[in-house]
Design a protein around this nucleic acid. Structure first.
Lengths: 232, 232
DNA sequence: TAGTGGTCTAGACCACTAG
DNA sequence: TAGTGGTCTAGACCACTAG
């Protein structure tokens, strides 16, 4: 029997089934909290617990004063987990530091990083390695702050742990990713030991702090047959 | 004053601030529900409401019997919204049907779709159009069921609405995406009116039902300079 | 005005953890 | 055993919606 199933789970499964089986259709209102309270003979708080899970899982949405409604399915969002494959197994890549420099940023980087003065940037260049094989070339730019030691920044970048270099604010950033395809140019083909014009998957990331200040910009060039992105 | 802010919001903001400012560090336990109840002078239910939001937003996780702990930031997941740009604006693409056929699937499709008998498949070929310009070529395979009218399937595919062809079970599917880069081969270059070897961003999707049965497989070939994927 | 969801309480009992 | 989170109740009052 289901006697060890919590009550909120019973009502949750019940509504989920009605949505999945099509008894409740997108945009249709589901029974009100009061109705569910009476039908299932449970308290409103417990009903609301089940509903809040349905909301979080994207099954329903609420309109105050009107009711709860079935969501339209959304097939256009999916989540990329960079370090996981399609079976949700972790993929561990090594990285090999090529060099770290402090430079006057080239104009395209100035624009991308919204640098409007003569501030310098730190450039970190690395290889991404999988089983002793180069699979990508990675280049990251971050604002140079003479007061901060560079080595610490390097360390963090190299370990892919944080992107804004201080653990204290690590939860406080926003990341924007772009994905596109290109062919390897002369320079990249030498760096990655591949033929010129070999297909490359490019991941571009811009990292902003809570004030929309850009605190990092990076590009990773993946050799296309050695890497693919997987999403669910 | 903050008098119109609900109590759960106050405690929510408070804990969020402690995490973002670094007062509470990853893996560290946050004050217990009882402590929060006393400190903030609010009921446990309200405290739990705030905590459940923090859990959903990925700030904390719970260990039964031990407490609530600050999550490690995860920079490796991001969400791709296929029809949105980086400013979260909707992008609407048109599609133009090229043709629909019922064929004996080629062997690579048989493997991908796990077809082990002589079942046929429906093939839908389309262009994706943006402002009267072809930006991609799209090909989708779905199991052919002689009992179902094909036109309905077409319609659904063309409208990008559902991927398993019956609204009733639309919430009940799983989608796996792969993203990779390649160059246009002879045939694709003709289809998309581009040079051979032009860079192509490839989106591959496999759609499974709740029983892990493959109910659709599709590939979209984007002309790289006309399309990029954006994620947050 | 009747019905809907939103916030909140005080209290109960249970399951898990760790000393 | 003391402390933690997990489930659940009966009830209150409020804000929003729509006729």
């Amino acid at each position: 029997m289901n006697n060890n199933k919590p009550k909120y789970q019973i009502i949750l499964d019940n509504i989920k089934n009605m949505i999945c089986s099509g008894k409740l259709k997108p945009e249709q209102m589901i029974p009100s909290e009061n109705q569910l309270t009476n039908e299932f003979g449970i308290s409103r708080v417990t009903v609301r617990k089940a509903l809040s899970i349905l909301i979080n899982e994207g099954y329903i949405f609420t309109v105050h004063g009107k009711g709860n409604f079935v969501c339209k399915p959304n097939f256009n969002d999916f989540t990329i987990q960079i370090n996981k494959n399609e079976h949700n197994e972790s993929l561990e890549y090594d990285s090999k530091l090529i060099n770290v420099n402090i430079i006057e940023p080239p104009s395209n980087i100035k624009i991308l990083m919204q640098i409007y003065d003569n501030k310098k940037v730190v450039v970190v260049k690395r290889y991404i390695i999988n089983q002793n094989e180069k699979i990508a070339y990675d280049i990251k730019y971050l604002p140079y702050n003479p007061k901060e030691p560079i080595l610490e920044k390097e360390f963090h970048y190299i370990n892919y742990q944080v992107s804004n270099f201080t653990e204290s604010t690590a939860q406080n950033i926003k990341k924007i990713m772009n994905i596109r395809a290109d062919k390897a140019d002369e320079s990249l083909s030498k760096i990655l030991n591949i033929d010129k014009d070999y297909p490359i998957l490019i991941l571009e990331e811009t990292i902003k702090d809570i004030n929309e200040q850009i605190i990092g910009y990076g590009t990773t060039f993946f050799i296309s047959n050695k890497y693919k992105l997987t999403g669910i």
